[in-house]
Amino acid sequence: MEIALASAIGILVAAGIYLLLRARSFDVILGLTLLSYATNLLIFSAGRLVPGKPPVLRSGIDPTLANHVDPIPQALVLTAIVISFAMTAVILVLAMRGRADNGSDHVDGTESKERDR
């Protein structure tokens, strides 16, 4: 399971960085989204991967990490998801506004080819 999760994080980061470096604002936004997915998985794995154990205490079960999964990374992931969701919404609106104002989806507002023509 570790190797699957690690490769998933690696592939998401690689794809995210590739898209982030492209010159279209839509691609950049997709890249940032993929990066934030990879980050969420990474934080999740910081609490160690254990199947079938609850993150909340229950009576009768000894409150140690042998019987439970660490709840803090899950709380952190929740915060990170909310923040990255909101930021994606902001940048999406901005990209649409930029396209309307500058007439192009290029991250610099204009295409270099168009300027030459």
Binding site: L20, S25, V28, L32, L35, S36, T39, L42, I43, F44, S45, A46, G47, I72, P73, L76, A80, I83, S84, M87, V90, I91, L94, A95, G98, V107
Partner: peptide, 22 residues
């Protein structure tokens, strides 16, 4: 757009370090 994209990328890196640190 440049400012926000740059800062979101930096924040993502921040989260990665926090995950590793914890």
């Amino acid at each position: 757009f440049h400012y926000i994209a740059f800062n979101i990328a930096a924040s993502t890196l921040f989260l990665i370090t926090l995950g590793l640190l914890y």
